[in-house]
Design a protein around this nucleic acid. Structure first.
Lengths: 343, 343
DNA sequence: ATATTGTATGATAACGATACCATACTATCA
DNA sequence: TGATAGTATGGTATCGTTATCATACAATAT
């Protein structure tokens, strides 16, 4: 565990000279540079970045605080973050909150203590106080994927409202009227946005009275639970709108158990895709966001905020990525001809 | 950005007393404790863990260096690691190497400089020198998922050889003789182990002359490439053994393009499953490893090594998790009755 | 009554690096 | 020839914490 002093002694120079060689800063003669490098190699010297960081106030580490790496949307987003950060010489600490505000608070506290240079946050709750806490330490933050009840903050996300509108309209165009939305939790902005897009599409097409949605969790379990609940009612929907990919998968599984055929008996669509390196024959009609690019863009923005630190209050950006409708088998063909209005 | 000195001044005590309060160490009277806590709250003091780490030589950070978070096997493994580490008060830095030894070397160098307390490594190459480099810094390391050409090291992995044997035997039991294995890269131990298990099964069942395998990459692309290569030959296989889940998916996709029906025309099986929260109707017959548990166990082992640091050379463990065969539609029914030996 | 242990607090130095300032030599310019 | 700029090196203080040692009083044991 050689230190910079050991190297300096061995090379017969001052520690600061070694520092200059390591960091390629200041003036060092070719002669001394070689001597120092030899000493470094002989001693197998590894600089202690902690000490450096203590002085320079830079750790070259950022954190990604999100819900669950296991959700493929976030898996790919995480990869976008890591690639971009690593390219710029930053490491990434990953934190799974499982949508728990407590967990989020704990992580944020810990990360600030660790002096991370910046934080990427997918807030567990629109009303998360994290931003205020983070700002107090002057740590740059970029919010990803979701809105948050805070005016001055950078946000990078997909167009949930527009996507939900298009996805609903797609079903309406196919002749569906009884479209049930199985949403995520009401405390999360994407859920609310998607409900809003769904409602708008329904209203604009004269289906206001058919509006039917449930708030639940962004999980497979919630998808199956909600389906069982929905299908225990008198009148059944002809189409199911899964609030995210996990809900959609849970819904499909539950429908299978109920012997309801997709898309013959009921259409199913999903907000967010399942990455096609995981499914040989994609089946779900879905709104597709670009998770990798979202992660990438958010990281670039965060890194630029880190570099500009200390400058006057920046012009905060809200970057909204457009989303795409991909039509596959699960939404089936037009049902206009054989559909009978039940109520 | 208050420091411990600011808090001390405000509370009218010495910095060390504040330190004692924060860390709940040594003796502090109830009276002073309250005073200090008040000062901490008033100043919104956040301890600087860098400085602490510099003194204590503990960062409470570990690293997971693996190939690609995007592979669902590693996604879940990563979750197991994060949960276990976070439970014990450790943060995790994630590093994707994409099977590149250069990338691995770079990351390892950086992580050692950051003084991580331990490293979990999925080596890109059996001959990776990483262990020697890491050991020089006295940093504990646990190898995950793969073997490595190094005697004294902890390893936590699944049983590739046994799994491949059983998977192959499953196909043989169904009557297949022409079974082609599309393997991962030869520089990775799991590939070699799976080839070995496959070979053993073939030989033990008198199919030594039918042994047919290709080394490629652990990727979807490699799966499609190899299928195209294999099916451009005169004699076609009746079963395809995908060396991992990505290869299997790639193979299925390519077969679809070639209008070869699975499982009617050819059976497909996979080493590693696709997590069932991602596929509503699982189709692939697969050998299933427990990625979460592997990550968990490896992290526990690493943390115990970190705690025991400085003690005499530990008894290194090789923990091999048993794997499970899950039979689904993709391997089809018995073909014994309608199968004709071509050569 | 003295020794011992437990409780309570602080001063000082150190962890390993770098920022800042100081020094000194050489080369170039007016 | 003296001034100025560029090159080359080092000393000292400091980043924010904690380890170590020192001090002191109270309570208990002998």
């Amino acid at each position: 565990m050689a230190t910079i002093h050991d190297v300096a002694k061995k090379a017969g120079v001052a520690p600061i000279t070694v520092s200059r060689v390591i960091n390629n800063s200041g003036y060092v003669s070719e002669q001394l540079r070689t001597k120092v490098n030899n000493a470094i190699n002989e001693l197998e010297y590894v600089p202690n970045v902690l000490a450096r960081s203590l002085k320079s106030k830079r750790t070259n580490t950022i954190a990604l605080v999100f819900t669950d790496i296991t959700n493929p949307f976030f898996t790919i987003l995480a990869r976008g973050v890591e690639d971009t950060a690593s390219e710029a010489g930053y490491n990434v600490i990953f934190c799974n909150t499982d949508e728990s505000q407590d967990q989020e608070d704990n992580y944020i506290q810990l990360l600030l203590q660790k002096q991370v240079d910046g934080i990427l946050l997918v807030p567990a709750d629109v009303n998360s106080e994290s931003i205020n806490i983070i700002r107090k330490q002057n740590t740059p933050i970029v919010v990803i994927d979701r809105n948050i009840a805070h005016d001055n903050v950078d946000i990078v996300r997909g167009d949930s409202e527009g996507g939900a509108y298009n996805l609903t309209k797609h079903l309406i165009d196919l002749g569906h009227k009884r479209i049930t939305l199985l949403s995520g939790p009401a405390k999360v902005s994407t859920s609310v946005d998607r409900v809003r897009g769904y409602q708008r599409a329904m209203k604009e097409h004269g289906l206001a009275t058919f509006v039917d949605y449930f708030y639940g969790q962004y999980s497979v379990q919630s998808g199956t639970d909600l389906i069982n609940q929905v299908f225990s009612r008198e009148t059944k929907p002809t189409a199911i709108f899964g609030g995210n990919n996990l809900i959609a998968v849970g819904a499909m599984t539950a429908l299978q158990e109920l012997n309801v055929k997709v898309p013959d008996d009921v259409a199913v669509v999903s907000f967010d895709d399942i990455p096609n390196n995981l499914v040989p024959n994609p089946f779900l009609t879905a709104i597709v966001q670009p998770p990798y690019e979202i992660g990438q863009k958010a990281t670039e923005l965060l890194l630029s905020r880190i570099q500009d630190e200390g400058e006057s209050e920046p012009a905060y950006q809200e970057i909204v990525f457009p989303v795409k409708l991909i039509v596959r088998a699960s939404s089936g063909g037009s049902i206009a001809e054989n559909y009978t209005d039940v109520s």
